[in-house]
Design a binder for these strands. Structure first.
Lengths: 139, 139
DNA sequence: AATAGAGTTAACGTAAACGTCAAGATAAAC
DNA sequence: GTTTATCTTGACGTTTACGTTAACTCTATT
């Protein structure tokens, strides 16, 4: 397996962010690439963490919250059951956060449906109500 | 009907924000309460707009984006069909934004499921996989 | 050997979204 | 009629999440 590695500008281009963002995320402890001499070398795992970070950002999480979420993904499984239980509790907490956001989305979409119907009504048109508001493959 | 009205601190307490936030949102054009003398008086409609704003904030929208969303809700229906079509296009755009966020949530939840299963596996437990990750009353 | 290209740290700048005084107006309560 | 509470408008401060030079280093050519 060809353990792929990336330079800072590789990742920056791939995700249309700037190198500065990657250095900043590193400063905040989100990603910690190894170094080749002084230059940063990003692994596939680092890339995954970056993806997670950017998803979190799109959802409005702070970098601190994102760091907590990312740390859940750490494949270095702890042996200590207490740490595992701690992980599970954190997991459930973050799941709640996400479900709350999901509900916010749903309510906003519902309200938008009403607006659309009203607008369509004013336009004198008619159409099948409440369709395609969410992708249907929810699970 | 008892057209309910609210003071700035009424709304602040109700939503656990500060008056400063309400004044700031007004400055940015999100809410425009009428005045009793010099004091702000918030209507039921203003309250609704505030709820929308806070939902948008929880989802990570900027105040500018939130303003756009809120304006969609304006019950003063335009007569001009071109404006209505414009409204409909905007509506679809915002829906897309929301659906993107929804997909981000779903992917994060899926990844969390995997982590949980791994942790439970390490704990030597077993359980019904992939349940209760989202509220079931999606529509 | 000089030049270009990509990387580095350090430091200051900035936009967004408020927080935090300060100083005054106003209305209600005593 | 004066304290008390609540409001107002500035105006400056703060945190987050980067942007933007600046000054250097290090290979990699040419």
């Amino acid at each position: 397996m060809a353990t792929t590695e990336y330079s800072i500008s590789d990742l920056a281009q791939a995700f249309t962010i700037t190198p500065r963002t990657l250095r900043f995320y590193e400063m905040r402890g989100l990603i910690t690439p190894k170094r080749h001499g002084v230059s940063r070398v990003y692994s596939e795992k680092d890339k995954v963490r970056l993806e997670l970070a950017l998803r979190g950002k799109r959802l409005g999480f702070s970098l601190e919250e994102i760091k907590e979420i990312i740390e859940l993904y750490d494949p270095s499984q702890p042996e200590d059951p207490r740490q595992l239980y701690f992980l599970l509790r954190k997991l459930h907490q973050k799941r709640k956060d996400l479900i709350n956001k999901f509900n916010d989305i749903r309510e906003t979409l519902n309200a938008m449906d009403i607006i659309e119907e009203r607008a369509l009504g004013t336009l004198g048109k008619r159409q099948n109500p409440r369709v395609n508001q969410l992708p249907l493959d929810i699970d």
